[in-house]
Design a binder for these strands. Structure first.
Length: 713
DNA sequence: GAGCACTGC
């Protein structure tokens, strides 16, 4: 192997010295046997005692009494526990046992992901010997499995934020636990600032911030000297190897390293981290082929791609057993999983012994100047590298091959990944904060304050949409918009749609725009997929095409053949199912807020015109104009763009409205409709006011339009 | 004439 050996004990790397906490006698939950469950008033089952034995062996168990003492003495406590410490399942139970959920008060524990909220709730209900959905429950979008007797509730961080909009003091909670705080999701970051304000007003509220990394010290400072409890994780040691020289081509190096492991290392599964689908499929093809060419000199390689857009059944393959030896006395086979970051945070795979880490991932970046979010292949952080290597030590000692130099690891990599709030368009965040009663955004206590320009862009957008007035105060329509789990442009178009007599249709379009692309188009079956899409194409543009697809889906549903029909027509069934749930949820919110659901008669010649105008009411800031050269230029920003090849508009209209600006090999506008200049002037006169408009062909076209109008008068 | 890291409401 080309790698220089360097042994680093993972437990020591970045983890610091672990503080051992003494066990206090007599604090075990429920006693040894024959106890009565205070939550159900029933005798504990045998299973309860079985599980309890295991719980007592978790590292976090040792910190039990210390945690409760800290909670009694301080409003906020920070707890660091690495993988395997047991914090996610145990901490809420400890706090409940200590009597923090008396009366109608609950403990809320947030998770960044739905699956985690569901599975942890299920586990904890078993550990506490209660029924899921009664004393222990969970709440995620589309699903509330909790009730009047619930004392511990697991919920996504986004869900708690939504709850805060109707209950600004979070008055039903006695304790809030923010788990996985090191991930710094947008929602967690907003909750930090919000909770800091709530804690001032509610001295009875307790907060526990749980993190897997030592960034915890930053949390301590932020929450003004909150005490810190450290709990060791339970990982086997992982040997770390670095390359001696930087690798010029990380994909090549990664494939080579995996093949060398396969040929020379002891049995054990391999996990390779790459950045995206295309790269992963390419690597899988090459690894399979070359491993096969090794013949008898190596065992069988079972190469499995893993990324989020794979259907769940294919994702399940990662849990398959490694192949048996090819023959008697042959080398055992191994699983080689080639994955995106999904295996770093969301999915854990047991049995991984070797991790190959080229050191890159795709990250979202936001450019406030052009108001565009895009994905860039970026070097990962040291925290991320640490997390990746840890994936090798879950079931036995492992090895991690980092395809960069140790010097680069120390000097080039950032300590932490930039939190999402610094990399995002903040339109909906600002709208939510306003609804949550945060008056002064500039002085809101962000743990990491976003760039002023990013906040300005968000305020400007919301002002143009009419959600904020010129003083930055939430308007009536802004308050309604904030109730929808949507981007401000989408919620504006939805809220405005009854005026255009098409809210039923806009509801569908909004749902379709909120879910992953429903068109399936494998590269080797592109022609067939394109032909299938043709049946749904509407000449007014992509939004109407999406409307047609959804209508077809509903018709297929009536005869129960929707799954097959999706497959036959190259449509993503999961996408359409989820558009359906989103639509139902949005319809419920519309009903609650008296947004009337109406339609124009289908035979009316204004049926589609009304829909397109409603879209303009939310997206008038995303319009491009055709120049003399035949190219499109975005309005006001004057960026030269091309219609994305997937766009159904063939006639090259003078004005197009786009849903997305994508920065890839070229500047594309994607998901477009044909619109008229007149509508822009009618629907958004404040934005198309020429006193504040750069010189360009679009301006000249608007000038002619205004001229014609004044003559007409 | 082409993508689509990952989540979440």
């Amino acid at each position: 192997m080309t790698e220089r050996k360097r042994k680093v004990d993972l437990g020591g790397e970045g983890g610091g010295v672990v503080k051992r906490v003494e066990v206090e006698a007599g604090t075990t939950a429920g006693g040894e046997s024959g106890g009565v469950n205070p939550l159900t008033h029933l005798a504990y089952s045998e299973r309860y005692y079985d599980i309890l034995k295991g719980r007592k062996g978790l590292p976090i168990w040792q910190a039990r009494s210390e945690l409760i003492r800290m909670l009694n003495e301080h409003q906020t406590t920070v707890l660091v526990g690495e993988t395997g410490s047991g914090k996610t399942t145990q901490v809420a139970q400890f706090i409940c046992d200590a009597g923090f959920c008396s009366g109608q008060m609950m403990i809320g524990c947030t998770q960044p992901r739905r699956v985690a909220a569901m599975s942890v709730a299920k586990r904890v209900s078993e550990e506490m010997d209660v029924n899921l959905g009664e004393q222990v429950g969970y709440t995620i979008r589309f699903e509330d499995v909790s009730g009047p007797n619930t004392v511990i509730k697991f919920l996504t961080d986004g869900m708690l934020l939504r709850e805060a909009m109707t209950d600004p003091q979070l008055s039903r909670y006695s304790v809030i636990i923010l788990d996985e705080a090191h991930e710094r999701t947008l929602a967690t970051d907003i909750l930090f600032g919000l909770l800091k304000e709530i804690l001032e007003k509610r001295k009875d509220l307790k907060l526990v911030v749980m993190s897997a990394t030592l960034e915890a010290e930053k949390f301590q400072t932020y929450f003004i000297d909150a005490p810190l409890i450290k709990v060791p994780g339970r990982l086997f040691p992982v040997e770390i190897f670095y390359t001696q020289e930087p690798e010029r081509d990380y994909l090549e190096a990664a494939i080579r390293t995996v093949l060398q492991i396969h040929q020379h290392e002891d049995p054990g599964d391999v996990l390779l981290f790459l950045t995206g689908e295309e790269e992963i499929e390419e690597a899988c093809r090459r690894i399979s082929r070359e491993a096969y060419d090794m013949g008898e000199t190596a065992g069988e390689a079972m190469v499995i791609p893993l990324y989020s857009s794979l259907p769940p059944a294919q994702q399940q393959r990662i849990f398959a057993k490694a192949p048996e030896p090819k023959g008697p006395g042959g080398k055992p086979g191994r699983k080689i999983i080639v994955s995106t970051n999904i295996a770093e945070t969301s999915l854990t795979i047991d049995g991984i012994v070797y991790v190959v880490d080229p050191g890159f991932s795709k990250q979202k970046v936001y450019n406030p100047r052009v108001r565009v979010e895009s994905l860039l292949v970026t070097p990962i952080s040291r925290a991320s590298a640490h997390q990746r290597s840890g994936r090798a030590g879950r079931t036995r000692p492992g090895k991690c091959f980092r395809l960069y130099t140790e010097n680069s690891f120390q000097k080039d990599l950032q300590e932490q990944t930039y939190p999402e709030i610094l990399r995002s368009n903040l339109g909906s965040v600002v709208l939510q904060l306003k609804k949550l009663g945060v008056e002064d955004l500039v002085h809101f206590d962000f743990m990491d304050p976003p760039a002023p320009e990013t906040l300005m862009r968000a305020l400007e957008l919301l002002n143009y949409l009419g959600a904020l007035d010129d003083e930055g105060e939430l308007t009536q329509i802004g308050a309604v918009m904030s109730e929808f789990p949507l981007d401000p442009q989408l919620s504006k178009m939805l809220v405005a749609s009854p005026q255009f007599k098409c809210s039923n249709e806009i509801l569908t379009v909004t749902a379709m725009l909120s879910v992953p692309n429903c068109f399936v188009r494998p590269r080797d079956k592109a022609r067939e997929a394109d032909a299938a899409k043709e049946q749904f194409v509407h000449s007014d543009g992509d939004h109407m095409t999406l409307l047609n697809v959804f209508h077809a889906f509903k018709q297929w549903q009536a005869t129960g053949e929707e799954k097959d029909m999706c497959y036959n027509n190259w449509l993503n069934y999961r996408s359409l199912k989820s558009a359906e749930s989103v639509r139902d949820q949005l319809a419920r919110i519309c009903n609650r807020l008296n947004v009337n659901l109406v339609s124009t008669d289908f035979s009316d010649r204004y049926y589609y015109i009304n829909i397109r105008k409603a879209i303009v009411s939310g997206y008038f800031m995303q319009v491009a104009h055709m120049e003399k050269s035949g190219k499109y230029q975005t309005v006001k920003d004057n960026e030269l763009v091309m219609l994305h090849p997937s766009c159904v508009l063939g006639n090259k209209p003078e004005w197009v409205l786009y849903h997305e600006f994508v920065l890839t090999s070229r500047h594309y506008i994607r998901t477009c409709i044909d619109i008229e200049g007149d509508w822009l002037v009618d629907i958004a006169p404040h934005y198309f006011d020429l006193s504040n408009f750069p010189v360009c062909a679009a301006r000249r076209s608007l000038e002619r339009l205004y001229m014609k109008r004044s003559k007409g008068k």
